[in-house]
């Protein structure tokens, strides 16, 4: 499974929201992510992808859509 599919499944598991068709939508504005959800997502991503996402990095500007999070995970995996 690729990262995008895994992220979609993760968000579905955590927040019962399917973001397949809204990968470019702001997840905070859509009411899917909030500060609580952000941390849960960080912990889940750490476990799943073996990456360390700093809490202060997952800002609302650069990690706020599905596609941006996928890009962020790829960036951290290759770092």
């Amino acid at each position: 499974m690729d990262i995008q599919a895994e992220l979609i499944e993760m968000i579905d598991d955590l927040f019962m929201e399917d973001i397949t068709d809204i990968m470019d939508e702001d997840l905070y504005n859509a009411g899917i992510l909030d500060s609580m959800g952000t941390v849960e997502l960080i912990v889940a991503m750490e476990e799943k992808f073996g990456i360390k996402v700093p809490v202060s990095e997952l800002g609302r500007d650069d990690w706020n859509t599905g596609n941006k999070i996928v890009a962020g995970i790829k960036g951290l995996k290759n770092a």
Binding site: S35, T38, V55
Partner: peptide, 14 residues
Amino acid sequence: RDFVFMRLVFVLVK
């Protein structure tokens, strides 16, 4: 939110 709440949640969830 960034330096208390989210960090508390992080410790509690982790």
